[in-house]
Simulated scan of single mutants.
Amino acid sequence: MAGTRWLDSDEQRTWRAFLAATELLADALDRQLQSDAGMTHAAYAVLVILSEASDRSMRMSELARATNSSQSRLSHVVARHEERGLVRRERCPTDRRGQVAVLTDAGYDVLTATAPGHVETVRRLVFDGLDPTQIEQLGTISQALLAVLDPEGKLSAVFPVS
């Protein structure tokens, strides 16, 4: 394959370290949230996004985009939250076919009880090991990656980065 742009040894080392770090971080966050709240990081993200939305509610299609999830996967997560009384679904007032996910008071309570442990885990696993310059570099690198991975800014509309 003459056209393949192979990674050089420095790029390969960087890629493998990045991949290992992101996989280990995702696993650690899932473990912490499973232990503290009985949910995955993806399920926690649904509660966070709803808590920050106007009236703590959002169209399911918009919530799927915001969580970078398929409609089907999101529907399963919301169904589990509904079983626990954390979220409820309502008909969309402007579109009979659409549904809106609404964070309940119980869901908000679970989120506020879980957030301190989650933030502490993020701080311990990501920020405590970096100096201020590295934190700034991580932000710059993350924004550059987002520009390539999310060129339309779908996620950054929900998770502002600037």
Score class of each variant (00 low, 15 high):
residue 51 S to R: 12
residue 58 M to S: 04
residue 33 L to A: 12
residue 15 W to R: 05
residue 114 T to P: 11
residue 54 S to I: 08
residue 88 R to S: 09
residue 74 L to G: 03
residue 148 V to M: 10
residue 42 A to N: 12
residue 53 A to L: 02
residue 151 P to L: 04
residue 121 T to S: 15
residue 159 F to T: 01
residue 130 L to F: 03
residue 136 E to Y: 11
residue 82 E to Q: 15
residue 46 V to M: 02
residue 55 D to E: 11
residue 24 L to S: 13
residue 138 L to F: 10
residue 110 V to A: 08
residue 94 T to A: 12
residue 123 R to I: 03
residue 98 G to P: 07
residue 17 A to N: 08
residue 112 T to S: 09
residue 125 L to R: 07
residue 105 D to K: 13
residue 47 L to C: 09
residue 135 I to C: 12
residue 65 R to Q: 02
residue 27 D to C: 11
residue 130 L to Y: 05
residue 66 A to H: 01
residue 80 R to S: 09
residue 75 S to G: 12
residue 149 L to I: 00
residue 12 Q to H: 15
residue 81 H to K: 07
residue 9 S to V: 14
residue 28 A to E: 14
residue 75 S to P: 03
residue 46 V to R: 02
residue 66 A to P: 00
residue 63 L to W: 00
residue 19 L to P: 02
residue 80 R to Y: 01
residue 57 S to T: 07
residue 152 E to P: 01
residue 30 D to P: 14
residue 155 L to P: 01
residue 147 A to W: 04
residue 11 E to R: 10
residue 28 A to V: 08
residue 36 D to T: 15
residue 136 E to L: 13
residue 121 T to D: 09
residue 34 Q to C: 14
residue 84 R to E: 15
residue 48 V to D: 15
residue 69 S to L: 09
residue 146 L to T: 01
residue 138 L to H: 06
residue 148 V to Q: 11
residue 95 D to W: 13
residue 99 Q to N: 07
